[in-house]
Computed example of a mutant assay.
Amino acid sequence: MSDKRVVMVVDMQNGVFATPRRQQQACVAKVNQLTQAADRVIFIQHEEEGGLEADSDGFALLPDLLRPDNALYVTKTACDAFYQTTLEQVLAAHEITGFVMCGCATDYCVDTTLKVGASKGYRITVAEDAHTTANRPAAEAETLIAHYNDVWRTLTVPGNPVSVKLVETIVKQWQAN
């Protein structure tokens, strides 16, 4: 499965989006473009007290998100989707060594999972227009998204650079192969 088209969708849950996120519907549409073009989709869902309890409405994925029948699901309790989860076992069982990342929140769970995953040797491409976050006290969401796209483009992981591409570019490359 290492050469297959795999998308990891992070924390696109009702409870996460209870806090307003930048261009929620546009982000969902871009995520759906990826999941429709992918061979395999992995949904990462955050679980914690305060509205993200397992099996709660807050824990559920956003209703407009497309869910392929063969999708895989991993629950996490930290910003890092690799921390004390089954993610590495799921990736190994399906022979996945690289994936496209998208989801929420850019500056927390997407960023942390991306950096840990790249350090573990996974080939990661970020869909630069398919992740979102909220406005923060220090910076607006739009600034944070642009900032993290730039950080990821220049992230130093010798021998395993992170790619940052538009959804349209990713899908076109997949269709060409």
Rank of each mutant, 00 (worst) to 15 (best):
S2F: 11
D3V: 06
M8E: 15
V9A: 00
V9Y: 05
V10W: 04
D11W: 00
M12V: 00
M12K: 00
F17K: 04
F17V: 06
A18G: 13
T19F: 03
R21W: 07
A26W: 03
C27Q: 12
K30I: 02
V31G: 12
Q33W: 05
L34F: 12
L34V: 05
A37T: 03
A38E: 14
V41Y: 12
I42Q: 07
Q45H: 00
Q45A: 00
H46M: 04
H46K: 02
E47R: 10
E49Q: 15
E49G: 07
G50W: 13
G51P: 00
E53R: 09
D55V: 01
S56C: 07
D57H: 12
G58A: 05
G58C: 03
F59E: 05
F59V: 01
L65G: 02
R67I: 14
P68C: 15
D69T: 11
D69A: 12
D69Y: 01
N70G: 00
Y73L: 13
Y73W: 05
V74F: 03
K76N: 05
T77G: 09
Q84L: 04
Q84C: 02
T86K: 09
L87I: 03
E88L: 06
Q89K: 05
Q89Y: 01
V90F: 01
A92V: 09
A92M: 13
H94C: 07
I96T: 13
I96F: 09
T97L: 05
T97W: 06
G98F: 03
F99L: 09
M101F: 03
T106G: 00
D107E: 15
V110W: 02
T113V: 07
L114W: 02
L114I: 12
V116M: 06
G117A: 13
G117S: 09
S119F: 08
K120D: 07
K120F: 14
G121K: 11
G121W: 04
Y122N: 03
R123H: 15
I124H: 08
T125A: 11
V126I: 11
V126Y: 03
D129M: 08
H131E: 05
T132D: 00
A134N: 12
R136K: 11
R136W: 03
A138S: 10
A139P: 00
A141W: 10
A141Q: 10
E142S: 12
E142N: 01
L144T: 13
I145W: 10
I145E: 09
A146K: 14
A146T: 12
H147V: 00
V151C: 07
W152T: 06
R153I: 02
T154N: 10
V157F: 12
P161I: 04
P161E: 04
S163N: 11
K165T: 07
V167L: 05
T169E: 14
T169S: 07
I170E: 08
V171Q: 06
V171Y: 10
Q173I: 08
W174K: 10
A176M: 12
N177W: 12
